[in-house]
Design a protein around this nucleic acid. Structure first.
Length: 663
RNA sequence: GCUGCUGUAGCUCAGUGGUAGAGCGCGUCAUUGGUAAUGACGAGGUCGGGAGUUCAAUUCUCCCUAGCAGCACCA
């Protein structure tokens, strides 16, 4: 007999080997039907697994949404694999985990990879398997027997995986009915019928490398989204539609902000409307940096390759750099334009080496530290084609970059101040919440372990001292994610629809000052190495503006809106008055347009609303006679009936950047 | 870079082995209207580029190129 403690504190004595399913049935038939799995001493397990020791036990039902979703998605993945092997014999199975919104499974097809056209049939087969309500039964195998089985079945990937588990290990497999099985740690639902056949959808196919490594064979991955019921699935699909509506690439075109074209793939053509946003954001950042005692510099776009060799970037990132021959191109039509032995230069992929070169000019004293050197640095990186993505991943970009040269004992203060500055900026820009992570040393790196110990600890200390190492900031440490020369703090902000974006970073670097020989004279009269903090708040203007556009769904706050107001007339007799109003707003610094076209007011309101102009000032004869305007805010139906002076004052206030509003 | 899909008018997209169509936008004219589409007429395309198959290719095949979704990469 064993003792089972239930969540309400009650204790039941049952036979050894009793299953949680039996206990659920004992409690009541409703629970028996609803029970999906069981939590035993904190671990989620199958409901059919026999219990053999005294335990605390909690039954999981669909009300425990997080666990239930995880179970369902994992099971959907298995059902997907079963369906694919049924329809496409000879397909090898590999892995199929759950994801944030569903599941996927990676296959090695016998012939061509799967295409979208294969999905409907597979979905149909999955529904058949679910409706058949096949029991999912756990079984424990001896490792070598299982390897032999996989090899016999031609499942090379499964055999390889099993062979890497420790010799003599017992491995669990799950049977779906009696005719299909997969190696899996579990847990699983008691049967396929616990899944809702209307709560999933196969969404796409893609390639994926075996075990995530580019050198391995490429598998064919099928993605699905999976939920507990049809309603959840539908809500998810609506969310996807919402996200698609605010796609910055779509809005960029609709709002005439920027475009891309093949002649400069991956680089942005900013249109005047979009560039206004950039200029406002840049002006804001410049004020913040000036206020925080940064010194702005501007450094060369192209430098000798030797400089990149010295910094270490040439060796590690050359394939992503734009190389420029330091040579006069041949004018001879028959000769190659560039000779084979031309000296090489490269477009800068980052600003740090140039900043070190400025630092090295003249002799620096400890009194000069900390030295905060900022640059809105335009960089180029030859990103792989498949990586390019609208404004979010481009080949030419401008960072809000800065490097702080300081003594070791100044690090914590500097990092703390940076955290405060970044906090202010994110809040000003409309992002209320963000997460902080510490990315630790990667496998391939420069510098000694001692350096890394120090660097990591300093960053950790600074975040703690800044009081930001808590739950509110989802503080965590990520192993292996650091840059090759330094650990970094990462700042991930959360947008209006809950997505997260890594933007800010600060990296504590002992390596570059050493490699590029930066030094200062200390109080003791001797030369010392400064440390270097690489930091950015926005990351890049391109990417950040992309995120801002999506965050606001194109409805930018007035200070960033390309056109802040439109004065729209109802009749041509009001044109003269409308122009006068427009002039007054312009004189107050508002970006305003007059819309005097011979169109109905409905049409004008609709058009400017779709263009996401935050203020529409409607004027007809009534307003002209009374010296007023009818102000309609974007997205609102009501209008304010104001005098021109009132409207000017109001819009002037709204058009101020957040840092200027406080003053 | 890898896998799959896509590329037709400024935009969104139909369509076809016999060199093309819609809506919006644009232009002209009429209309002077009170808060999310006034009407009529008109102009716009070597159907991403190259090669092949064919009497004939925007349509079928191959290559290239760009975009999209993933993967890998992201100093």
């Amino acid at each position: 007999m064993i003792k089972i403690t239930l969540p309400d504190g009650s204790v039941r004595e049952v036979e050894t080997g009793t299953t949680a399913a039996q206990i659920a049935a004992d409690i009541g038939p409703g629970l028996a039907k609803a029970a999906l799995a069981v939590r035993i001493d904190g671990e989620v397990r199958d409901i059919m697994r026999p219990l053999d020791v005294d335990t605390e036990l909690a039954l999981i039902t669909s009300r425990d949404e997080e666990e239930a979703l995880e179970l369902a998605r994992h099971d959907f993945a298995h059902v997907l694999a079963e369906a694919v092997q049924k329809l496409h014999p000879g397909t090898q199975i590999t892995f199929g985990p759950s994801t944030d919104d569903g599941f996927y499974y990676d296959f090695a097809p016998a012939g061509d990879p799967f295409t979208d056209d294969d999905l409907p049939k597979i979905e149909e087969e999955m529904r058949r398997i679910i409706k058949a309500d096949k029991p999912l039964r756990r079984e424990v195998w001896e490792r070598n027997d299982l390897i032999a089985l996989w090899e016999k079945d031609g499942e090379k990937f499964k055999a390889e995986w099993a062979a890497e588990l420790p010799e003599g290990d017992e491995i669990s497999v799950y049977w779906s009915g009696d005719d299909w099985m997969d190696m899996c740690r579990g847990p699983h639902l008691p049967s396929t019928g616990k899944l809702d056949p209307q709560a999933f959808q196969l969404t796409r196919v893609s390639g994926a490398y075996w075990r995530g490594d580019q050198r391995n064979p490429q598998l064919s991955r099928i993605y699905g989204t999976g939920w507990l019921n049809k309603k959840q699935l539908k809500a998810h699909l609506v969310r996807l539609e919402e996200a698609a509506k605010r796609d910055h690439r779509k809005l960029g075109q609709e709002m005439d902000l920027f475009h891309f074209q093949p002649e400069a793939q991956g680089s942005v053509f900013w249109h005047s409307q979009g560039y206004i946003m950039w200029r406002e954001l840049e002006a804001y950042m410049r004020r913040k940096l000036d206020g925080a005692d940064y010194k702005e510099v501007k450094t060369p776009q192209i430098m000798d390759a030797r400089q990149w060799e010295a910094s270490g970037h040439w060796g590690k990132y050359r394939e992503n750099m734009f190389v420029v021959p330091d040579e006069v191109p041949s004018v001879d039509d028959d000769a190659p334009v560039i000779s084979a032995d031309a000296d090489m230069m490269a477009l800068k992929p980052m600003n740090c080496p140039a900043h070190v070169l400025i630092f090295r000019q003249g002799i620096k004293s400890y009194r000069d530290l900390p030295m905060r050197m900022a640059e809105f640095g335009c960089c180029h990186r030859n990103e792989p084609h498949g990586a390019l993505h609208g404004l979010l991943r481009v080949r030419q970009f401008t960072q809000d970059d800065a490097h702080i040269f300081c003594r070791e004992d100044q690090i914590v203060d500097e990092v703390r101040h940076f955290c405060d500055l970044l906090d202010r900026v994110y809040k000003d820009l409309g992002f209320e919440s963000y997460a902080i992570k510490l990315a630790l040393r990667p496998e391939q790196r420069f510098g000694t372990d001692e350096m890394w110990d120090k660097a990591e600890q300093n960053l950790r200390d600074a975040v703690h001292e800044a009081g930001r190492a808590g739950e509110e900031y989802q503080w965590e440490e990520l192993s292996g994610e650091g840059a090759f020369y330094s650990p970094k703090l990462e700042f991930h902000l959360t947008d209006a629809i809950g997505r997260t974006w890594q933007c800010g970073t600060i990296q504590l670097d002992y390596v570059l000052p050493e490699r590029l020989d930066a030094s200062y004279i200390g109080e003791d009269g001797a030369r010392h190495r400064p440390v270097m903090l690489h930091r950015a708040i926005l990351g890049t203007f391109e990417r950040f503006l992309g995120i801002m556009i999506e965050h606001h769904a194109g409805r930018m706050p007035t200070w960033l809106a390309p056109t802040q107001a439109v004065v729209a007339t109802i009749v041509t007799d009001a044109n003269e008055y409308a122009e006068k109003v427009t002039e007054q707003l312009k004189a107050a610094g508002i970006r305003v347009e007059a819309d005097l076209r011979n169109e109905k007011i409905n049409y004008k309101v609709r058009e400017h609303s779709l263009a996401k102009v935050p203020n529409i000032l409607v004027v007809g004869m009534r307003e002209a006679e009374e010296g007023k305007v009818a102000l309609r805010k974007l997205g609102q139906k009501e209008q304010l009936f104001l005098t021109v002076d009132e409207a000017v004052t109001m819009l002037k206030g709204e058009a101020l950047a957040p840092d200027l509003k406080e003053a």
